[in-house]
Design a protein around this nucleic acid. Structure first.
Length: 878
DNA sequence: GCAAGGTC
């Protein structure tokens, strides 16, 4: 029996460190082994994995897509190989002489599987050491001590449930993905994928798009007026009637009726209050953040799901917030909210709001959501306070959101007072309404829900709903939810109010809206599709695969074709039922009612049947996919040969427009060099080509019709504004290594390129490629002012409301690069805006310069910075 | 190169 150390294995480094701290009383020390932290104290070692360190795949002989029929993958063997070599090697080394092993991975199904993977790796090198499993629902002193005092065994059934999922996902995903890709001859980077999670997610988006396309708008009218109590402010009131079912309705569906009602409303100058109703409503504080709720809240601050998660992960790694991937919406018992609020109250920004919660003399009882899980707590601040300069602007905004959400969950409800006033306008209206009533009945005798009761005896009904915040409650600490009031004054029944600003608005019913990213993630969660850690990544994947574009995402033709093909032949893979079925099977395996073999065999049989139909229709499916792929790239007719103009990618990776008739027709048009082209539905009237938008993150812009852009550039003469500093008269030196000499007579001119971009460049291009960038938009004015240093005119740009001064194009470019270098420096941990400026003053232009600098020399040049700080930056810059 | 699930 080996007397070596005891080995504890966790799911991630962070958990390893905290568990080591707890069990060692903070005496553990960290050591690096194969780039992995190993925590060490007494006779113990603790190592953190990185989730799964082995992955399932097919044996190498199945790798060639062309050689292997996709159908063969269904019954192909599935192997498990290390994917994280360094961690696996470190684990083996530690396990070899361990006297005992404790698996302390997350307390959920995937954690059990990761634990089993570790178990198998340990057993490969150590057959004897006992292997225990500990489970705890949060990493705190009590829970961890308790769990380690009462070790359990690994649950192999639960792990087998996870393995069944892995194999089913792999066989369905790989076989169908290869089939679709091969049938459409898409074998490069642009293969056509499907899977258990991306399938139903894509169908959700495509189905909504179908609803939108099928939508038939209907016209209706709404009537409004402003009411005023004498001496008060006007408030808006809206006309309503009672429909056939006796319910209040605001939309008038008949134009003639709307006209008669408008006439009646316009004839009225006052309205008499008929009814006043007042009630108070409590507005409960929000529940704790799980991943989905967090993504949604960050979404309303303008962050994409992917960006929000990436920021939260940074904050987690830095120790400021808890683990961001969680389904849990109930704080664990060991969280003492009062203590955490006290810690937060030391912060400058939200500290006083936190204090406010403590001052109120009451028990603090945080809200609870519906879901309670055992792996991680809801996302909340740790109490470790960053200073604003430790974080980027975005990180800070997200951090503050998480802090304020926590504070809000500990705050009191808000109370609102609702006031509803109904007033009657134009006592004559009932007679008029009778006319309208008859008219509507005449027009639409079959309509089940007719116009009903258009006016009361006293006149047309107008209603106003006011709300006033009586107790702000949680709104004081959580400004992300609207606490706007709508003021309706106190009025009494019988009181006469002035009526003016009467108006009738013609409207149309709107198609359902596209799902936004956070809404999609909510829908996925609701349907049980994907997990807290993968839902946002699935959306990212759909973008990558050219299935969706823009935000809110809309499906491409390819996506529609993939969903159509799947619906016809493999409905299971685009239906949420596949996940539901799998979930039931996994539960049965975990409960010992079914086994792994039984479940995976049944799934393979189902996939076999799918392939029977699919193989017969291979050509038709491929054809349809190819047509859709082409439609996504088609702009319109080629002006030279009439074939389709398509977006193409050059060998260098840049996009351009080329003719489908190539090589017979060589017609091309350039596209801007920044971003990825997106074809809009809007077409150019002159050239019948779809407009192009260039997607480039924040720099996204609409390029428009590429033919128009090219024509405009051809028509525009270059405008000379000075002498080329590189090859013009009096230029200082020959060009570097070019062999050409200066003073070749080059001049600088404002040019417009066929790709739509604008620049100041040398007239000797391409012999001299000196150039300076100019903004894409706005009219350029050449002013009388001259730059003394460069002898060039100052430029002014007219775009938007206010013209702005670009100044000398050389000076402008110099400032621009300085800013770029500054922001590059700021990307290094520990360097803020001010420090970046100081470094630039000391001649450090960007991160490369910083890394090359001698720490002592640089420290001497920069105030208040020592050589060690410089070394820290250099380390951080790697 | 395929999936989905961990983690960074």
């Amino acid at each position: 029996m080996s007397r070596g150390p005891e080995l504890i294995i966790t799911e991630k480094d962070n958990a390893a460190r905290r568990i080591a701290d707890i069990l060692s009383g903070e005496s553990a020390t960290a050591e690096r082994q194969n780039d992995v932290n190993v925590y060490k104290w007494g006779g113990k070692r603790c190592i953190g994995l990185s989730g799964h360190v082995v992955g399932v795949d097919f044996p190498a002989e199945y790798n060639d897509w062309r050689d292997v029929e996709p159908v063969e993958l269904i019954d192909a063997p599935v192997t498990k190989e290390p994917t994280q070599e360094g961690i696996v090697a470190a684990l083996r080394k530690l396990a070899r002489n361990a006297s005992r092993v404790v698996i302390a991975t997350d307390y959920d199904r995937e954690g059990e599987l990761i634990g089993k993977e570790a178990y198998e790796l340990v057993r490969e090198v150590n057959e004897d050491a006992p292997i225990d499993r500990v489970r705890f629902s949060s990493i705190t002193d009590n829970e961890v001590q308790e769990a380690f005092a009462n070790p359990d065994e690994l649950d192999f059934d639960l792990a087998a449930a996870g393995e069944a999922r892995q194999v089913i996902d792999l066989t369905w995903g790989a076989a169908l993905t290869r089939f679709l890709s091969l049938s459409a001859r898409q074998l490069g980077d642009d293969f056509i994928s499907v899977g258990r999670v991306q399938g139903p997610t894509l169908k959700l988006i495509v189905d909504r798009e179908r609803e939108i396309k099928a939508f038939d708008p209907e016209a209706y009218w709404e009537l409004y007026g402003n009411l005023t109590k004498s001496g008060g402010d006007p408030f808006e009131a809206r006309y309503f009637y009672l429909n056939d079912e006796g319910n209040e309705a605001e939309r008038v569906w008949d134009g003639d009726v709307a006209e008669i009602l408008t006439e009646a409303l316009n004839a009225a100058e006052e309205a008499v209050v008929d009814d006043v109703r007042r009630r108070t409503r409590t507005d409960e504080p929000p529940t704790p953040f799980n991943t989905t709720a967090f993504i949604r809240a960050a979404g309303s601050l303008g962050y994409s799901a992917q960006r929000a998660m990436s920021l939260a992960e940074d904050l987690y790694t830095a120790g400021y917030v808890t683990y961001p991937r969680t389904d849990n919406t109930v704080y664990p018992e060991d969280l003492d909210p009062r203590e955490l609020i006290e810690e937060l109250s030391a912060a400058s920004t939200f500290g006083s709001d936190a204090k406010g919660l403590l001052d109120a003399d009451r028990e603090i009882e945080p809200t609870e959501g519906d879901k309670e899980t055992t792996d991680h707590p809801p996302i909340h601040p740790t109490g470790e306070l960053p200073s604003a300069s430790d974080l980027s602007e975005d990180e800070w905004e997200v951090y503050e959101l998480i802090v304020r959400r926590f504070l809000a969950t500990c705050a009191e409800p808000a109370t609102w007072e609702r006031l509803r006033v109904v007033a009657l306008a134009n006592g004559e209206a009932s007679a008029i309404a009778e006319r309208a009533d008859g008219l509507a009945a005449l027009r639409d005798p079959d309509e089940a829900a007719g116009p009903g009761d258009l006016a009361a005896d006293g006149g047309l009904r107008l209603k106003a709903n006011g709300k006033r915040l009586l107790e702000a409650g949680y709104h004081d600490v959580y400004p992300y939810r609207s606490s706007d009031e709508r003021i309706v004054p106190d009025v009494e029944v019988g009181e006469t109010l002035a009526l003016d600003d009467r108006r009738t608005e013609a409207k149309e019913t709107q198609p359902p809206r596209r799902y936004g990213q956070s809404r999609l993630i909510e829908e996925m969660e609701k349907r049980g599709v994907g997990t807290k850690a993968t839902r946002h990544r699935t959306l990212e994947k759909l973008y990558d695969r050219n299935y969706i574009e823009s935000d809110p995402p809309r499906p491409t033709r390819l996506a529609e074709a993939v969903v159509e093909a799947a619906e016809e032949f493999a409905d299971h893979v685009v239906s949420e039922e596949m996940t539901a079925q799998l979930e039931r099977d996994m539960q049965a395996i975990a409960a010992g009612e079914k086994d792994y073999d039984e479940v995976t065999a049944a799934s393979r049989e189902l996939l076999d049947r799918v392939f029977e139909d699919l193989t017969e229709s291979r050509e038709a499916v491929g054809d349809h996919l190819q047509k859709s792929l082409k439609a996504d790239k088609t702009l319109g007719p080629c002006p030279e040969c009439g074939a389709d103009l398509l977006v193409r990618k050059s060998r260098q990776g840049s996009y351009f427009v080329g003719c489908d008739g190539y090589p017979d027709c060589e017609y091309t048009l350039p596209l801007p060099s920044t971003g990825k082209p997106l074809l809009l539905d809007e077409t150019c009237e002159d050239h019948d080509l779809r407009h192009v938008k260039m997607l480039a993150g924040r720099k996204t812009f609409v390029h428009g019709c590429p033919q128009c852009k090219a024509d405009a550039a051809d028509e525009q003469e270059d405008e000379v504004i000075g002498v080329c500093p590189e090859c013009g008269e009096g230029a200082a030196s020959p060009r570097d290594g070019g062999g050409e000499t200066a003073d070749a007579g080059g001049e600088l001119a404002i040019k417009r390129l066929r790709s739509g971009s604008r620049l100041v460049g040398c007239t000797r291009y391409p012999d001299c490629d000196y150039s300076l960038p100019l903004p894409r938009r706005g009219e350029l004015e050449i002013t009388d002012e001259t730059c003394e240093e460069h002898d060039l005119p100052h430029l002014r740009v007219h775009s938007g409301d206010e013209p702005w001064e670009l100044g000398c194009p050389i000076c402008n470019y110099r400032e621009f690069t300085a800013r770029q270098e500054g922001s590059e420096l700021q990307s290094v941990d520990g360097i803020g805006e001010k420090t970046a400026e100081k470094l630039q003053d000391a001649g450090v232009d960007g991160v490369t310069d910083l890394k090359d600098a001698d720490p002592d020399e640089l420290a001497a040049d920069v105030d208040g910075v020592g050589p060690d700080t410089v070394r820290d930056w250099q380390a951080n810059a790697d």
